[in-house]
Nucleic acid binder design. Structure first.
Lengths: 104, 104
DNA sequence: TTGACAGGCAACCATTTGGTTGCCTATTAT
DNA sequence: ATAATAGGCAACCAAATGGTTGCCTGTCAA
């Protein structure tokens, strides 16, 4: 899980996920197009995403296809959000109320 | 939004959020208790969480109370997850199917 | 079979990050 | 008034991070 958060921390990597979301199964070179980054930089980002299990790859001949894996992101929603979500809006509302009481 | 992801990338900071979730409105020194870190390190983490709007603080006399703000985390769930969630399980299932076809 | 294309590996570099220590300020309690 | 308490600021440091360049390997097409 730690790896997922670290992987998502970088904007370049998030945009790579965006690209894969737009069109799944792209090759490395396709993912490089239009980016102000060398191919090797992208390779590193993809490796990090792969290790975090956010991207799955498959070799097909000399090409490596990249597929988005939505499961870990979904798990954040399941574990983290849910954890803090109880009393979602209530938190801020109650916060204000408590402080008003405290500072009287 | 970038700040939120960066703030969540660190395990120490996530555990600070856990602590605040367990008991909201703690002071800096309370949050330091039992951690293998100096007070100043915790201060820095809290500053980052504050900048990401994940923690709201209020001065009360010489104390600074820290409150968890669940809204940005909730927004991840709203924006990111939703974005990739379409065809949640479908993605992996379809992935396998496509590859089986491709590699025949 | 040979060149072009897709990708991998490794060394290197600058900046960011997570942490430290040391000292300063403000508030509270004795 | 003064000591203890709660927190802030700044300089500094080591390690991690995001990026580069250079070169190597494997696969496909002419």
């Amino acid at each position: 899980m730690d790896e997922v958060f670290k992987a998502l921390a970088d904007a370049s990597r998030r945009s790579l996920l965006d690209r894969l979301h737009a069109r799944n199964g792209q090759t490395l070179n396709e993912l490089c197009e239009g980016l102000a980054m060398t191919r090797q930089a992208v390779t590193k980002h993809l490796a990090i995403l792969e290790q975090a299990n956010l991207v799955t790859t498959i070799r097909h001949g000399r090409e490596k296809l990249h597929y988005l894996n939505p499961v870990p992101i979904h798990q954040i929603g399941e574990r983290w959000i849910k954890k803090f979500e109880r009393g979602k809006l209530a938190a801020l509302g109650e916060l204000k109320r408590q402080l008003e009481k405290r500072d009287e």
